[in-house]
Computed example of a mutant assay.
Amino acid sequence: MPVPVVLPAGFSSRAATDADVEAIHELVAATERELHGEAETAPDGIKAVLSRPGFDPAVDSVVVHDVDGRLAAWAWLNRGKRAQIDVDPGHRGLGIGTALLDWAEARAVEVGTTDWIAQAVDDKDQAGVDLVRARGYDVLAVNWQLELPMDSEPVIPALPEGLTVRPFAAGDAAAAHLLIEDAFDEWQPRRKSYEEWAAMMIERSSFAPERSPLIFAGDELVGAALCLDLPDTDEGYIEQLAVRRDHRGKGLARTLLAVARHGFYRRGKRNLTLWTHSDTGALAMYERLGMTVRRSTTMYRGGPF
């Protein structure tokens, strides 16, 4: 049975459904435009959250509407550990975010989480930062969005002898999942199953296999940059980038970035972005490759409950 949400008068809540995807996208985009002057959220990213294996929207998500039926906020909790709350800029300061944080914590306890949950808050969202800080949440990690403008057609560097590069193909999915999860095991709290990874990555409508370079040593996959081609933007996005541990320090990340940039440049894109996590230790590497920080979010951890 869904955990109830105690909201201010005039607001109602229910579980999210696929029919809400576009409205949720518009809400999240509005928050991004308020904080950064532009939106990067895509509808297929919202749909991926609702459809990921192990996630039950009927009990793990909430949408909040005002008295006029307008979407005012939404929240979700994945596997009792990772929460996200977004409140429309026009409905802030009314206690909706507090009510949804109460819901997330109660839902976590219901599924057996009593130690902690984590939530990412944009570093420019002072109200959100103040809310989690007032609850005793502390910093778990920092995420940085990096960018690399493309003022001219990128030059692709030569690979070391014995290595080749080509775009992602359908038969590469299993190897790409293994490479990504092996690399991310070094910092992420849990390993994603193939089904969950695929739902969040290659099954998205914006996944761009033809602009996602893979590097091989013989027939072994040793590097990958999996990219999204989002509509209505002049930017290309690298969603996941990984190099196998035994092939690091050979310039493969530089080549993956260059090939991805080249493909997006040919598509008329003039900026390349990606996110990196403080636990990866990759920020300095990306900065050496010419990328700069554009925005950041902090992952806060709260509990026990």
Rank of each mutant, 00 (worst) to 15 (best):
V64I: 11
G97W: 01
R82Q: 13
S61A: 14
V87D: 01
R70T: 07
D86T: 11
D68Q: 14
G97V: 01
H91W: 01
W103F: 04
I85W: 03
V87W: 00
G90R: 08
I85H: 10
W103E: 08
L94Y: 00
G69M: 10
A106V: 05
A106Q: 13
A73D: 03
D60R: 14
A106N: 08
I96K: 03
W76H: 14
A58C: 03
A104S: 13
V67N: 09
T98I: 01
H65W: 06
D86K: 06
V59N: 12
Q84N: 12
A73W: 01
D60V: 10
R92A: 00
L71W: 05
S61N: 15
H65C: 15
R70F: 01
V64E: 08
D60S: 14
A75H: 02
P57F: 14
D88K: 05
G95I: 04
Q84T: 09
G80N: 04
A83I: 06
V62I: 15
A99T: 02
A72G: 07
V67F: 10
A83R: 10
V63N: 01
A75W: 01
V64R: 06
V62Y: 13
G95K: 07
W74K: 11
G80T: 03
A99V: 02
A75G: 03
V87H: 02
L71D: 04
W76P: 00
V64F: 09
H65Y: 12
R92Q: 01
P57K: 15
D66S: 13
G90M: 06
A73C: 09
G90L: 08
W74L: 04
W76E: 10
R92L: 00
D60E: 11
G69I: 09
I96S: 05
R70S: 10
R82P: 00
I85G: 10
A83C: 14
W103S: 09
A58F: 03
A58N: 09
W74A: 10
H65P: 02
D88M: 07
G95Q: 06
Q84F: 06
P57D: 15
A104T: 11
L101S: 12
W74T: 05
A83Q: 09
D88N: 13
I96T: 04
G90N: 09
R79E: 08
V62N: 12
V64M: 11
V64T: 11
V63I: 09
V63K: 04
D68T: 13
S61G: 13
D56S: 15
E105I: 14
G69V: 10
G97S: 07
T98M: 04
D60T: 14
H91D: 01
A83E: 06
G97Y: 02
P89F: 02
D56R: 15
R82W: 11
H65E: 15
A104I: 02
D88F: 00
A83T: 10
W74I: 03
